[in-house]
Simulated assay, not measured.
Amino acid sequence: MLITLKPGERIYLNGAVIRVDRKVAIELLNDVDFLLENHVLQVEDTTTPLRQLYFVVQTMLIEPRKMAQAQKLFREQLAGLMTSFRDEAVVAMLGDVGNLVDGARYFEALRVIRRLFIVEGAILGAGTPRPRAA
Results as ranks from 00 to 15, higher is better:
98 G>V: 02
88 E>H: 09
85 F>W: 14
110 L>M: 13
96 D>S: 14
83 T>G: 06
96 D>C: 02
93 M>F: 05
81 L>H: 09
109 A>F: 07
72 K>H: 13
103 G>S: 15
112 V>E: 04
68 A>S: 13
72 K>I: 04
97 V>M: 01
68 A>H: 12
95 G>F: 05
117 F>H: 08
97 V>L: 00
86 R>T: 08
79 A>E: 15
112 V>C: 08
72 K>C: 01
77 Q>Y: 03
111 R>V: 07
109 A>S: 14
94 L>E: 06
69 Q>M: 14
68 A>R: 15
98 G>M: 10
78 L>S: 09
71 Q>N: 04
98 G>L: 06
75 R>W: 02
105 R>N: 12
93 M>P: 00
103 G>I: 00
95 G>R: 11
110 L>G: 05
99 N>Q: 08
90 V>Q: 04
105 R>D: 10
118 I>C: 04
96 D>I: 00
99 N>D: 06
112 V>H: 03
102 D>T: 00
74 F>Y: 10
114 R>T: 06
74 F>W: 03
100 L>I: 00
108 E>L: 11
72 K>S: 12
77 Q>M: 15
110 L>I: 00
81 L>K: 05
109 A>R: 10
81 L>A: 05
97 V>K: 08
70 A>D: 06
111 R>L: 11
119 V>Y: 15
102 D>Y: 00
84 S>M: 13
91 V>G: 01
69 Q>H: 12
95 G>D: 04
85 F>M: 08
72 K>D: 13
87 D>L: 05
93 M>E: 09
79 A>V: 09
70 A>T: 07
95 G>E: 12
106 Y>A: 04
113 I>V: 12
105 R>W: 03
76 E>Y: 10
93 M>Q: 11
97 V>R: 09
106 Y>K: 13
70 A>C: 10
68 A>F: 08
76 E>G: 02
81 L>D: 03
81 L>M: 12
81 L>C: 08
118 I>F: 11
118 I>T: 11
109 A>W: 01
102 D>E: 09
97 V>H: 03
85 F>S: 07
80 G>N: 13
78 L>C: 04
69 Q>K: 15
116 L>M: 07
91 V>P: 09
106 Y>T: 02
94 L>Y: 04
85 F>H: 08
79 A>C: 01
96 D>H: 05
77 Q>S: 08
104 A>T: 09
89 A>L: 14
96 D>V: 01
68 A>G: 00
76 E>Q: 12
119 V>I: 14
73 L>M: 05
66 K>L: 14
97 V>I: 05
98 G>C: 02
105 R>F: 04
109 A>Q: 12
72 K>E: 15
69 Q>E: 14
100 L>D: 02
99 N>H: 07
87 D>Q: 11
105 R>P: 01
117 F>I: 09
